[in-house]
């Protein structure tokens, strides 16, 4: 689904997906799995530290989604419903396996704001490059850049990865994410900010020409 869609368009698209799934359209199932599998896995990995266990739970969750299609009443969006299923299954499995999950465990020492970039007065030490010609669509057309962002998502702490996947990739709103993951809005904002800051820094090394070359401080501030 493309950026810029309104809520009505998303709901219409989900209604269409649901109608196709209920008709037994295999292409609709394939599209659904391709579109949401990464987010489903990121939610499972938040609760289960073992990737193999997380993948197993996601598979169970997909089966539960298929089995539940007949009973799905549309009170939550299809995407929210699916992500809630995987979250519940992963929580149950984590409890069974004795995995301790500290969703709100935010390390105060970890500064998401790249402290080395600022001088003692709090201003940027180096000039920030202009990316204005780089639209998201153009960035997404660069396969190497997309691969590197995928890698960067992969190495984020699980709580940051889950939050940024649900908020920025899946486009869910904050209350829905808090409800699915069981975290507070304040912590959601902190985790989201840290994840976005890290990902911007990764993009900067790829997009900004001569990033490694020391550049004088901007003089048109």
């Amino acid at each position: 689904m493309s950026e810029g869609w309104g809520r009505a368009e998303h709901m219409a698209a989900e209604d269409d997906d649901l109608a196709r799934l209920r008709r037994g359209d295999k292409a609709a199932l394939r599209e659904l799995v391709h579109r949401h599998h990464r987010a489903m896995l990121s939610v499972a990995r938040l609760f289960l530290h073992n990737r193999a266990s997380a993948e197993e739970i996601v598979q169970d969750a997909w089966v539960a989604v298929l089995d539940g299609l007949a009973r799905y009443e549309g009170r939550a969006s299809l995407k929210t419903w699916m992500l809630a299923i995987v979250a519940n299954k992963a929580k149950t499995r984590a409890q069974r396996d004795g995995v301790v999950v500290l969703l709100d465990d935010i390390l105060p020492a970890e500064d998401g704001n790249e402290p080395d970039r600022f001088d003692r007065t709090g201003h940027f030490r180096e000039k920030i490059a202009e990316w204005d010609t780089m639209s998201p669509e153009r960035l997404a057309g660069d396969r190497e850049l997309v691969r590197r962002i995928g890698d960067a998502l992969e190495v984020l702490p699980p709580n940051q990865r889950a939050v940024v996947m649900l908020r920025d990739v899946e486009g869910l709103d904050a209350p829905t994410i808090c409800n699915i993951l069981g975290i507070g809005e304040t912590n959601l904002r902190v985790l989201l900010h840290r994840a976005r800051t890290r990902l911007r820094a990764v993009l900067e090394t790829l997009v900004t020409p001569a990033y490694d070359r020391p550049i004088g401080k901007s003089d048109d501030r």
């Binding site: 799995v33 997404a140 976005r196 993009l203 997009v207």
Partner: peptide, 17 residues
């Protein structure tokens, strides 16, 4: 840059299983 990063995440191609 921050907005472009978020924009990119929104149009990131799917990562199929």
């Amino acid at each position: 840059q921050f907005a472009a990063t978020i924009g990119l995440l929104r149009v990131l191609p799917p990562d199929p299983p």
